[in-house]
Computed example of a mutant assay.
Amino acid sequence: MQSIGMFFGTETGTTRLIAKKLYKILGEDIASKPLNVNRITVEEFLQYDALILGTPSYGVGDIPGLSAGCLERNWGEFLQQLGSPDLSGKRIAMFGLGAQERYSERFASSLFALYRVFEGLGAEMVGDWPVDGYTFDHSASVIDGRFVGLVIDQRTQGMYTEQRLKDWADQVKPLLIEKIARAA
């Protein structure tokens, strides 16, 4: 059986940490080792029918990358390499990081910017998450009262991270496994 591809962009290493925690929860039997998008090829990315993508938040809902002020290559540069392939047939779940107290007016908004790219390329997006338990003024990542993916605030709500990851993994795992089982 094919595995779930796991890819992330990171600026400080926190998104990498969260991706590794999620990988341990899912297990190596169904998930590939998380890889930084600044170290992969388009071919490596496209080989998966089910993916989990992680992103930090950067700027005012920008896609993290050099043009947004990141110090290293990130999603912005990977998306330039990716171009605009037809991703219909791919199922993607996403998680994003944010700081609800420090950036309350744009909390985790980069998640939506990345979500919009992959949805626009035809991918089936899964894994929305409730806004309950968060305190913020605005997030572009909220559609119909729910985040478009799991949101982690490691800075002020790190005590909830493990449980949120477990609960979200329980939600998306069957959807992603179903996709890779159909592709086999």
Rank of each mutant, 00 (worst) to 15 (best):
G59L: 08
L82R: 08
E44Q: 15
F78I: 05
T14F: 00
K166I: 05
V172N: 02
A93S: 07
G13F: 12
F8C: 01
C70N: 10
T12W: 06
F45S: 01
Q154W: 05
L46A: 09
A31R: 01
A93K: 01
L35Q: 15
D170T: 04
M6W: 00
E124V: 07
D137E: 13
W129K: 00
E72V: 11
G65D: 07
D144R: 14
F78W: 05
L150I: 05
K179C: 15
V126W: 03
G89E: 09
T41N: 02
S109I: 02
I63N: 02
Y48D: 07
D29T: 15
I40Y: 02
Q80M: 12
G145Q: 10
F78S: 04
F136G: 01
L46H: 09
L175D: 12
F7N: 12
L176G: 07
L121T: 06
I177M: 11
A113G: 00
D49Y: 10
Q80G: 08
E43V: 14
E105P: 00
E72K: 14
Y134V: 06
G83S: 07
A140D: 15
P174S: 10
Y134S: 02
L79V: 12
V142K: 02
R91N: 01
R146L: 03
M1E: 04
E178A: 15
K173I: 04
I4D: 03
E105L: 06
A50I: 09
Y115A: 10
S3L: 05
V117I: 14
R39L: 11
F112H: 10
E162S: 12
R91C: 07
E119R: 10
G122L: 08
P56W: 04
F112Y: 14
P34C: 12
V151G: 07
Q81N: 14
L176R: 03
R116P: 03
A99H: 01
D29E: 15
R146P: 09
G149A: 04
R182T: 04
G145A: 13
G76M: 05
D167T: 13
G145I: 03
I52G: 00
A68H: 09
G13T: 11
G127H: 10
R91P: 00
P174Y: 06
S84M: 14
Y58D: 00
G5I: 13
G61V: 08
P56Q: 04
T15K: 06
K33N: 13
A183R: 11
Q171C: 02
K21T: 06
E119G: 11
P56E: 00
S109E: 01
D49K: 14
T14A: 08
L150E: 01
S84Q: 15
L66Q: 06
L176A: 07
L51E: 06
I18H: 05
G98T: 03
E124M: 00
K90M: 04
G27E: 07
S84G: 11
L82Y: 05
G9T: 06
L97H: 02
Q157F: 01
A181F: 03
L17I: 05
K179Q: 15
K20T: 14
M125F: 11
